[in-house]
């Protein structure tokens, strides 16, 4: 806890350090123990207080925390008997997206998730979780397999965005994402999408169209990165905190805009403070959604999914404000 703190956690960390000092002090007196108790209470209150009023930008920092659980952690913590399936059958295995078969509480799923990587080496090999077109195509090939074999699909979203580069453009980054939006709208199997970290623009959306879209408390979902938005509209990337607020990208904002179905609570201090508990929350939500979606006929499922997206958008028609 002490070494991986975010800037706004400094008061919490200072207090933690003080508590640790007292705890390790062999000559502590009765009076000190009393102080220790008070400090511990202060510590809990302070954490609760600070985390209750994080700014949107601070939440973005939590969503990007290097220790935040990634797809691989959820696979380890809530999935049994995982069989990874590789490649897009056309160009390359893009490991910025992991795809495979797994069981959650005995129920079979096809699982698709962005993976940013943990070590420098892994991050590089996974291009920091920024998929190339072949990543989106790999996801689609596997999702069609799920459709054919009657497996529900779970997608875990955690990407800064689709990879920006020459190769990605040569191989049709825009076309690959568009193809996924098109196909995900019509896949005849339940699709559950959960934003576990960063929901970066089209790169996130490419695997985030489904029957349920939920988001972890400190994750975000945005049309553009706060830095990118700040660079364009403020002409300065340092205005990212203002951009983060303006974009309404937090879980709470997205729930109010009816873009996500549910906000999943994280442990105090963020998902990385207790990955097991976070995975438990996510797992329970997935099973609950599956229970809701599985009884639906294919026609009902697709009709509901169409309406879910059809109803998004706010505008004026004549003088009348339309919320679809």
């Amino acid at each position: 806890m002490i070494n991986d703190g975010l800037p706004f956690e400094k008061p919490i960390l200072d207090l933690a350090r003080k508590i640790e000092e007292l705890e390790n002090n062999p000559s502590a007196k009765e009076k000190d123990l009393e102080t220790l108790g008070q400090l511990r209470k202060m510590y809990d209150d302070l954490r609760r207080e600070i985390y209750a009023k994080l700014t949107p930008w601070e939440r973005v920092l939590v969503a990007r925390h290097p220790q935040r659980p990634q797809t691989s952690d959820y696979l380890a913590l809530m999935v049994d008997d995982f069989v990874e399936l590789h490649g897009d059958r056309a160009f390359r295995d893009d490991v910025a997206i992991i795809t495979g078969l797994g069981k959650i509480d005995g129920k079979r799923f096809l699982i698709v998730g962005h993976q940013k990587g943990k070590t420098t080496r892994e991050r590089l090999s996974r291009s920091f979780g920024c998929p190339y077109p072949e990543g989106y195509r790999k996801a689609l090939v596997k999702m069609k397999l799920a459709e054919k074999c009657g497996l529900p699909i779970l997608t875990l979203i955690d990407t800064p965005g689709a990879h920006p580069g020459i190769g990605a453009e040569e191989r049709g980054q825009a076309q690959a994402i568009a193809a996924n939006l098109y196909e995900l709208a019509r896949l005849k199997t339940p699709i559950i999408c959960i934003i576990i970290g960063e929901g970066g623009s089209g790169g996130a959306l490419g695997i985030a169209v489904g029957d349920k879209l939920s988001i972890l408390e400190n994750a975000y979902y945005s049309v553009i990165s706060p830095e990118g938005c700040a660079a364009i509209l403020w002409k300065n990337a340092e205005n990212a905190p203002q951009a983060a607020a303006a974009l309404h990208l937090t879980a709470k904002d997205l729930l109010e805009l009816e873009i996500v179905d549910e906000v999943l609570q994280e442990p105090l201090g963020g998902a990385h403070r207790d990955p097991e508990k976070t995975a438990q929350t996510v797992k329970e939500a997935i099973l609950r959604y599956l229970g809701e979606l599985q009884p639906l006929s294919t026609q009902e499922l697709l009709e509901r999914r169409y309406k879910k997206y059809r109803h998004l958008g706010r505008f004026l028609e004549g003088a009348r404000e339309v919320t679809l």
Binding site: V223, H248, L249, Y309, L312, G313
Partner: peptide
């Protein structure tokens, strides 16, 4: 914001 992003899914 994300309302624009979801228009991509809606039109598709």
């Amino acid at each position: 914001g994300a309302l624009s992003l979801t228009q991509m899914a809606k039109t598709s």
